[in-house]
Computed example of a mutant assay.
Amino acid sequence: MQKSFSLDGMNVGETATIRQLNALELPSKFFEMGLLPGTVIEVKHKAPFNGPIGIHIHSSNVLVAIRKSEATHILVER
């Protein structure tokens, strides 16, 4: 069984499935955008100097940018 790790640990081009979100640390807009457990995502861009991370949400075909500090609260699994 694969171990979960935070989204900010992924590299550009990697695909993973969301396993858990820390709902107390994330705004509700994340759930409205489709970032839910079981959703497949792909990292499309990582800005330098701890900048935003661009992720593609496969189920809704949407590209969103989230803060690195928010990405640490999203656990994914390859």
Rank of each mutant, 00 (worst) to 15 (best):
M1V: 10
Q2M: 12
K3W: 14
S4P: 11
S4G: 15
S4A: 15
F5H: 06
F5K: 06
S6D: 07
S6Q: 08
L7G: 00
L7R: 00
D8H: 04
D8C: 07
G9P: 08
G9L: 12
M10S: 04
M10D: 01
N11R: 11
V12Q: 02
T15D: 02
T15I: 13
T17Y: 09
T17C: 05
T17I: 06
R19E: 15
R19G: 09
Q20Y: 13
Q20V: 05
Q20G: 07
L21K: 03
L21H: 00
N22W: 03
L24C: 05
L24S: 09
L24A: 08
L24I: 02
E25F: 02
P27F: 00
S28P: 02
K29Y: 04
K29G: 05
K29D: 03
F30Y: 04
G34R: 00
L35G: 00
L35M: 06
L36P: 11
L36N: 08
P37Q: 09
P37D: 08
G38P: 05
T39G: 10
T39L: 11
E42K: 00
E42S: 06
E42H: 07
V43M: 01
V43C: 01
K44H: 05
K44P: 00
K44N: 04
K44E: 01
K44F: 04
K44I: 01
H45W: 13
H45K: 04
A47S: 11
A47G: 09
P48W: 14
N50E: 12
N50F: 15
N50V: 14
G51L: 14
G51E: 15
G51I: 10
P52A: 15
I53R: 01
G54K: 06
I55A: 03
I55D: 04
H56D: 14
H56Y: 15
I57G: 06
I57C: 09
I57L: 13
H58N: 11
H58D: 15
H58I: 13
H58R: 08
S59L: 14
S59C: 14
S59I: 11
N61D: 15
L63C: 12
V64P: 04
A65F: 10
A65P: 03
I66F: 02
R67Y: 14
R67C: 14
K68F: 09
K68E: 12
S69F: 09
A71E: 03
A71S: 05
T72F: 12
T72V: 09
H73I: 15
H73Y: 14
I74G: 01
I74E: 03
L75F: 12
L75D: 14
E77K: 02
R78E: 12
